[in-house]
Amino acid sequence: MFPILGLFFGFLVGWVSSITIPVEYAHYLSIALLAGLDSIFGGVRSHLVGDFDMQVFFTGFFGNILLASAITVMGQWLGVELYLAVVIVFMFRLFKNLAIIRRITLKNYIKSKKNY
């Protein structure tokens, strides 16, 4: 529940604030956002499965952001758009976690309907 509340709070703060991000940092922001969303959806999935660990969540959250940003920086130094590979990987993981969350939620919903 905390990851979803944090995501909502972050979107709310971003919506009402007047902070602008320079265009030069667009790749970094998109990568950090995808890494954070990947960790949040992974945390929700692991919570539904029953093996959520806050330490694993936080280390994965910040580790994903740092690694993805480092790959983006390295790609810019080399003149290769490596951030695209990171985007593809995170989008794959996001959709996979979302599919697992959907299956678990539907399974629990169907179970609860059978009990009535």
Rank of each mutant, 00 (worst) to 15 (best):
T20K: 15
I21E: 03
L37R: 06
W15A: 08
Y25C: 02
H27I: 07
A32G: 08
V23C: 06
E24N: 03
A35M: 04
Y25F: 13
H47Q: 13
I21M: 05
F52A: 02
G43S: 12
L33P: 00
D38V: 14
I31A: 07
S18M: 09
L34P: 02
A32Y: 08
V23H: 11
F41I: 09
G36S: 15
S17L: 08
V16R: 07
V44M: 15
L37H: 05
F41Q: 02
G43H: 09
S30G: 12
F52P: 00
I19F: 07
S17F: 11
L37Y: 10
P22M: 01
Y28W: 12
L37I: 15
H27E: 14
F41Y: 12
A32D: 08
G42C: 09
V44L: 15
Y28E: 13
S30A: 14
G43M: 12
V44K: 11
R45S: 11
L37D: 01
I21D: 00
A32P: 03
D51E: 11
L29K: 06
V16S: 08
Y25P: 00
D51G: 04
L29Y: 10
S46K: 11
R45F: 13
V16E: 07
I21V: 13
S17D: 05
I40W: 14
R45A: 13
D51R: 06
S18T: 05
L37N: 06
I21C: 02
F52W: 04
Y25M: 08
R45Y: 14
A26P: 00
V49L: 12
S30K: 11
S30L: 15
Y25H: 07
R45T: 11
I19V: 12
D51S: 09
D51Q: 09
V23A: 14
I31C: 04
V49I: 15
A35Y: 00
L37V: 13
P22Y: 01
